[in-house]
Design a protein around this nucleic acid. Structure first.
Length: 268
DNA sequence: ATGTCCACCTGCTGGC
DNA sequence: TGCCAGCAGGTGGACA
């Protein structure tokens, strides 16, 4: 679930619940996820007023009037349920506001994480300090990152220092839209192809957010299940199925241990 | 610096 | 019904 569009959707769902509200109950139901859960989480958040709910790359950020920022990462399996009807296995963090509304972080695989840092030094936090530009906030410039590199385009786009927020799904989709094979070495990607990538990336992310956004209406109805954009995937998860452009069967290969999907005819 | 791999976890699916 | 292999949206850190 959680690449940039999913995190954006989650934080948009959290915004009306949290922003301007005082947190009255904060529970950590285990000591660690990927990283230790701060032992002072409850003490520092309880009674604080949320001033801003936002996002950086795949990190959800919750600022408070005490000068702290809660950093949330959803890992591979993290979900946020708002006003859940009951407790579920792997519910790790529970936060309740003064309106009696509740957000629960559930993460079966525990690859996600929770940090609490001073807002003033947030950008220097080790998880955030090396992140590249936000792909939706300014024109995408890939030339410097691709020039002379032998790594495949897939790996470069997954590198959060190059662009912040892309994951396996949207890299596959963007490479398809740009008609570039995932295994092409960075240095061999032409200027024209880089330009197509620069256009395709925000386009794909934007459509995914729009699709996720359409589920926000149901956001409060428990289950927090997202991912309606999956019905729009053109290559991801479609091995052997016909390319929507040319009907050739979609290929699946493994690159650095992760599946890549592409059309062998449309992508060169 | 660059590139490659592994580990960290649980849950689900498909084959036998 | 059970068992096992393989797969899954991420990424820091350890290597060569």
């Amino acid at each position: 679930m959680p690449e940039l569009p999913e995190v954006e959707t989650v934080m948009r769902g959290l915004r009306p619940v949290f922003e301007g509200r005082r947190l009255v109950r904060v529970e950590a139901r285990r000591a660690d996820l990927r990283w230790p859960i701060p032992s002072d989480l409850r003490q520092r958040l309880t009674g604080a007023v949320v001033t801003r709910v936002h996002r950086r790359a795949k990190y959800g950020l919750v600022d408070t009037d005490r000068g702290d920022t809660l950093i949330l990462h959803l890992g591979m399996s993290g979900r946020v349920r708002v006003d859940p009807s009951g407790v579920e296995k792997h519910d790790h963090i529970v936060i309740e506001t003064d309106e009696g509304r509740t957000a629960v972080l559930n993460d079966a695989r525990r690859f996600g994480s929770v940090h609490l840092v001073e807002t003033a030094v947030l950008a220097g936090h080790f998880l955030l300090k090396d992140l590249g530009p936000e792909p939706l906030e300014s024109p995408i410039e890939l030339a410097a990152a691709f020039r002379g590199r032998s790594s495949p385009a897939k790996a470069l786009l997954l590198d959060q220092r190059v662009l912040a927020g892309l994951g396996n799904i949207y890299v596959c989709e963007a490479l398809y839209e740009a008609r570039v094979r995932p295994q092409r070495r960075g240095g061999k990607v032409t200027q024209a192809e880089l330009a197509r990538l620069a256009a395709a990336i925000p386009e794909v992310l934007g459509r995914a957010i729009a699709a996720g956004g359409s589920t926000l209406r149901d956001y409060r109805q428990a289950d927090g299940e997202l991912g309606y954009f999956q019905h729009e995937f053109k290559v991801y998860g479609r091995e052997g199925e016909p390319c929507v452009t040319c009907a050739s069967p979609i290929n699946r290969i493994v690159q650095s241990g992760r599946s890549s999907f592409y059309c062998p005819r449309c992508q060169m």
